[in-house]
Write a protein that binds this DNA or RNA. Structure first.
Lengths: 299, 299
DNA sequence: GATGTGCCATCGAAAAAACCGATTGTCAAA
DNA sequence: TTTGACAATCGGTTTTTTCGATGGCACATC
């Protein structure tokens, strides 16, 4: 009695909690249903609590069961981290990692990154999730992702970041005599203008305005697009002008269009790109190595 | 290959890391030396890294070994928490808990608390450590303590607190015509006076001064004592006056002396007493129950 | 340089456990 | 009432764990 649980038991518990079905959970764990059933029973005996309510029609968790399942998840993911640390220490870039990237970075950074990783570190498995910063941060906290590539600053509780590089904003337009006439463009020239921007939720929106020291009230925003490519198409059809991050231009987002770009005369009209991870995550070293790898080809 | 470690293996690893000696570590784990040796070897094979450098003269950890030992410690303590949650859920106040208490609270709260706990919850095992706030917080973070009883506010990273009760400060002196003459004492009357206070490191010092809206420069501190009892002895020998928390007076710290006390006319000349624990600790419910238990007899 | 001592690794056997397939028991739907 | 779906239980087999004994190594002692 009062035996500590084994990791195996905790894994089985999580499987049952997920499947709500002993047979399916057993398959998931590659064991027989009888073994699973016995294991759960033993776990409950050892812990002295009932975790799962079984009826032959449905399986559900007791309140304590929910709580223990949550704890088991964090314990198991820490064990995973432990193994990842070992793998990385025996050979860097040989394990796997789950990276979240925002939509205004992903298409411009990933092709090159994944390509180089495959060539230089073929053993390294990088899983990518592309989503808005907010959702990525949620996934990070849930333990579904290990590290995020975000535009910083972005507030993430209990997290640690490292800077990768700066990404300048350029003014992009097609036909605009007013802009053509200007020797050089300053952010002040944007006041009162119409700007095509991404819809709410994309941090690029706020970062671009902030970098230009603009408030929403300083400009008018006629349309909110869901992707930079859409915006580029609109600019190419002379619907308005916009701010584009340099990395998107480097990635040839403008190819096939007659869109002109102008840098701003001010310095630091830019966003910062960085990596972010849970402060508690023991794989910090690997993240730093990944950061260096990105900088090596991006800078 | 690439088998996940078992909790048993992690426990054994921690034991070896602690003892730096296979034989002793084996005794600690109640297993034979051969079993321990084999287990560590297997762990290293499964993880694919060398964790321990063995020579027949001394055992020491590789850098990765250090890292993995740290991770193992946190994992194991989370498993302990998991078991504690189960124990508490099958019957409140039936497990064990490690409580840190500061020296200006411990002697006045613990006798009553421990006594009542023993009577009402005989199965509950409360381990006490008495130390300065700073050291308790260190122990909390290291996982050596589960919960602290502190005077709040006290900054603790990644922690959560709950308020227990307020503890008034009273002026304590023996012979002092100036104070006798006053109808009522205000904190302003302390300016320029000599006050006996605890030495640096005791948060009572800062909390008392702050409650009286005094700075160190507003008064003179002729002597710094190591305990409230020392201060009381000094006051009883007419060396000066001091500020005493009401809970110490309730606990009869003045018995056998002729020391007089006067409350301040201002309200809120007091410190707040509360419980603090790691935000991540899943035993929050138990801590809240303990808080309620304390309030039930203290309020 | 022989001997002893302390230490960890290894070996083989015995004990313990984990696991499986088959079966049973239970409940609800048909 | 029968059937079907599901989890629990049983008995036997395989795998794992554990132990005591032994081996081998490095150092200290004489």
């Amino acid at each position: 009695m009062a035996h500590p649980p084994t990791l195996k038991q905790l894994r089985y518990l999580c499987a049952v909690a997920e499947q709500k079905h002993f047979g399916n959970a057993a398959k998931l764990c590659n064991i027989s249903q009888s073994t699973l059933s016995a294991a759960i029973t033993e776990l409950e005996e050892n812990l002295g609590v009932s975790l799962i309510e079984r009826s032959n029609k449905r399986v559900l968790l007791t309140p304590t069961g929910e709580q223990i399942t949550d704890l088991s998840h964090t314990i198991l993911s820490e064990v995973d981290d432990l193994m990842a640390v070992c793998k990385a220490s025996q050979e860097p870039f040989s394990g796997s990692m789950r990276l979240g990237v925002i939509p205004t970075i992903a298409p411009f950074l990933l092709p090159k990154l994944l390509n180089r990783l495959r060539k230089q570190h073929p053993k390294f498995r990088l899983f990518i999730k592309e989503d808005l910063s907010k959702n990525l941060v949620d996934s990070l906290h849930k333990g579904e992702l290990d590290v995020l590539c975000l535009a910083l600053p972005y507030p993430v509780e209990g997290a640690e970041s490292c800077h990768l590089f700066y990404d300048e904003f350029l003014l992009a337009y097609q036909n605009n005599k007013q802009m053509d006439a200007l020797e050089s463009v300053g952010t002040k020239d944007l006041r009162g203008q119409e700007l095509l921007l991404l819809e709410d939720g994309h941090c690029l929106r706020e970062h671009a305005l902030e970098a230009c020291k603009l408030r929403t009230s300083d400009i008018s925003i006629p349309y909110q697009a869901t992707s930079l490519n859409t915006i580029v198409q609109m600019v190419a059809n002379d619907i308005g002008m916009t701010l584009l991050p340099k990395m998107s231009i480097d990635a040839k987002i403008l190819s096939g269009t007659k869109i002109k770009t102008k840098p701003f005369i001010e310095k630091r009209v830019r966003r910062a790109i960085g990596l972010t991870w849970r402060k508690k995550n023991p794989r910090r070293e690997e993240f730093q190595q990944l950061a260096t790898f990105i900088q090596d080809f991006y800078l």
